[in-house]
């Protein structure tokens, strides 16, 4: 709780007429569930902004905005991808740690925005998409009013997952990072001898990428082990 009522400049470009709120919390977290849980418990009326790690490092201002009504997530928008709803969440998922700032507003201040169907998210979607926290998602859904138009199980909104899997660049990035990490750790852990396996792969992640291919993994070489 800093008590600092600073203006979030990134929201100036968002199509959401989000009024300036009072900053209640600003912290860097690896697990967004921590903040979503506290917002739910505090029954916050207001919004949070979420700046992913890559943006923190680059000093940019791309971020997602999620609004809350009584602690229950209501609408979401991503200022970088300019997408709303569950897609806004999936665009920013997995990019943590995040700097999350929580702003409080009078309970009726967001009423005009909360009627924006295009931007609506199911109540449990942020817990599920950003934190993969089933229990928190369930508790959030229980807290949501029965008449919430966008209510329901976020798993009934698979568009976020589909959008993620359709983003070949992002998938390639995840895989490349994992390969590099695996190679680094193989050396660190002294598991390098396995890579000397005759048909095995070289520790260089680039070589591996070329060997098995990233476009059509199903055509990966057949058993390379005895």
């Amino acid at each position: 709780m800093t008590g600092d009522a600073g203006r979030d400049p990134a929201l100036a470009d968002a199509p959401l007429p989000v009024p300036r709120g009072d900053l209640r919390r600003s912290r860097v977290v690896t697990d967004p569930a921590v903040v979503l849980r506290s917002v739910l418990e505090a029954r916050l009326d207001g919004y949070l902004t979420l700046v992913p790690q890559e943006t923190l490092l680059l000093g940019g201002d791309a971020r997602a905005v999620v609004t809350f009504d009584g602690g229950v997530p209501t609408v979401a928008y991503n200022t970088r991808t300019e997408r709303g709803g569950t897609a806004a969440l999936s665009d920013v998922a997995l990019t943590g740690p995040y700097r999350i700032e929580v702003y409080e507003l009078p309970s009726d201040a967001l009423d005009p925005i909360h009627g924006t169907a295009d931007l609506a998210v199911p109540p449990g979607a942020p817990a599920r998409e950003l934190a993969d926290d089933d229990d928190l998602a369930a508790r959030t859904r229980e807290r949501a009013p029965d008449d919430r138009p966008a209510g329901g199980d976020p798993r009934e909104e698979p568009s976020g997952v589909e959008a993620f899997l359709a983003d070949d660049d992002r998938i390639a990035e995840i895989r490349e990072q994992a390969r590099a990490e695996a190679a680094d750790r193989a050396a660190e852990w002294g598991l390098g001898d396995l890579e000397a396996d005759p048909a095995g792969f070289e520790a260089d992640p680039d070589d591996h990428g070329a060997k098995t291919g990233t476009e059509d993994p199903i055509d990966a070489p057949d058993s390379r082990k005895p």
């Binding site: 997995l94 976020g160 994992a178 990490e181 396995l194 890579e195 095995g200 993994p217 082990k225």
Partner: peptide
């Protein structure tokens, strides 16, 4: 879910790294 699929892909890459 996105986190689970992402982690699954990471496991796959680790596994592939060892053939």
């Amino acid at each position: 879910t996105i986190p689970a699929l992402s982690d699954g892909l990471k496991v796959q890459e680790y596994a592939r790294s060892y053939g």
